[in-house]
């Protein structure tokens, strides 16, 4: 057990440090790895939203899937499963993404923002923890999306195969897709560095079961501190990395890809946290699970991408005045899902 704790602590540290390295080599500030932001950029490349300056097939995502799929395959943990409320999971994926984009980052980036001195991350984490505690309340009341079952192997292989295709796309950058605006890609690190860091993160996350929502959830439910160790590891690794590279700037204002409207940060992450608990894991964990053959999680990834499209096209990103009513509607939706799905 001690070895496992050490492994997840080290794994978190490595992911945190490498995230800082990606920022140093070109990724946007405090965005070494962000599952929400990067899926959003991929959905932009496919024209699912019109913010074309945010259109790029992020190699980090491809790498994470390769790493997690490879690790799962070698350790015989690749099992194709599905059929546990896929449509609800799709909708929850959309919901989590819209919440995350109101805050401007998934739970992983929330930690990276804190580690870069972005104090708005504190509001994010408070909202996130509140959302998780609401979700835990319904879990204790018997919330369940029911069991999954064995599925045809081909379904589980689709995601890795799509990622191979996406890797070809990012190298060729074909004209039928969207690649940034006016010939300029969004800020990014070199392709193979991004891909390599993604692979390392994917292997670590698959082996350690790293999950941002799981950290707080398991403390609330079971007084289990295993997953929170990874969470803290990422924070410390990114903090060191940011200090070394001069990317640590403490404050609320002027932070990269952030806003300082506290209630949007709080409620955005509340929605993301609540939705993630209902799904059984944060966006990073969903990506890892789908790489392990969980096709329900693959459906969730599609939901996240659809959510990104919707959020940008309807102007629900960041501190827009449209965000608060939209978050209220999503909270009602989460309440409905939490109540009607019982074991």
């Amino acid at each position: 057990m001690k070895n496992k704790k050490l492994m997840i602590a080290l794994g978190g540290l490595i992911i945190g440090i490498l995230s800082g390295v990606l920022v140093k080599y070109g990724n946007p500030g405090n965005m070494g790895v962000c599952i929400a932001c990067f899926l959003r950029d991929i959905s932009g490349s496919f024209g699912l939203h019109s913010a074309s300056k945010l259109a790029y097939v992020r190699p980090e995502i491809i790498g994470i899937v390769f790493g997690a799929f490879g690790a799962a395959y070698i350790t015989k943990e690749f099992n194709v499963k599905g059929g546990s409320a896929p449509f609800i999971r799709f909708l929850l994926g959309m919901t989590v993404m819209i919440g995350a984009l109101a805050f401007l980052g998934c739970p992983l980036r929330m930690i990276l923002r804190l580690a870069g001195g972005d104090l708005n991350g504190i509001l994010g984490i408070l909202g996130f923890a509140t959302g998780i505690i609401i979700g835990v309340f319904f879990l204790n009341k018997g919330f369940s999306l029911r069991r999954n079952y064995n599925q045809a192997k081909a379904g589980g292989l689709m995601l890795p195969v799509i990622m191979v295709a996406l890797l070809a796309m990012v190298m060729i950058q074909p004209v039928f897709m969207i690649w940034g605006a006016d010939g300029n890609l969004p800020a990014h690190a070199p392709i193979f560095l991004s891909l390599g860091v993604g692979v390392v993160a994917g292997v670590i996350a698959q082996r350690t079961r790293l999950c941002m929502v799981g950290g707080i959830r398991d403390i609330a439910l079971f007084r289990d501190y295993y997953l929170i160790i990874g969470f803290i590891g990422i924070f410390l690794g990114a903090l060191v990395s940011n200090l070394v590279f001069g990317n640590f700037h403490m404050g609320f204002e002027g932070q990269p890809a952030a806003h300082s409207v506290w209630y949007v940060n709080f409620f955005g992450m509340l929605v993301a946290g609540w939705g993630s608990v209902l799904l059984g894991g944060c966006p990073l964990r969903q990506l890892i699970l789908s790489s392990e053959g969980n096709v329900d999680s693959s459906v969730t990834i599609m939901g996240l991408m659809m959510g990104a499209g919707l959020a940008h096209n309807l102007g629900l990103v960041g501190a827009s005045e449209r965000v608060v009513p939209a978050l209220c509607v999503l909270a009602i939706f989460l309440l409905f899902v939490s109540i009607i799905n019982r074991d």
């Binding site: 879990l139 029911r146 999954n148 079952y149 439910l221 079971f222």
Partner: peptide, 11 residues
């Protein structure tokens, strides 16, 4: 607990 998502097996 087969087929259940996290954290239901533990729950």
């Amino acid at each position: 607990t087969s087929g259940l998502s996290c954290p239901e097996p533990v729950l």
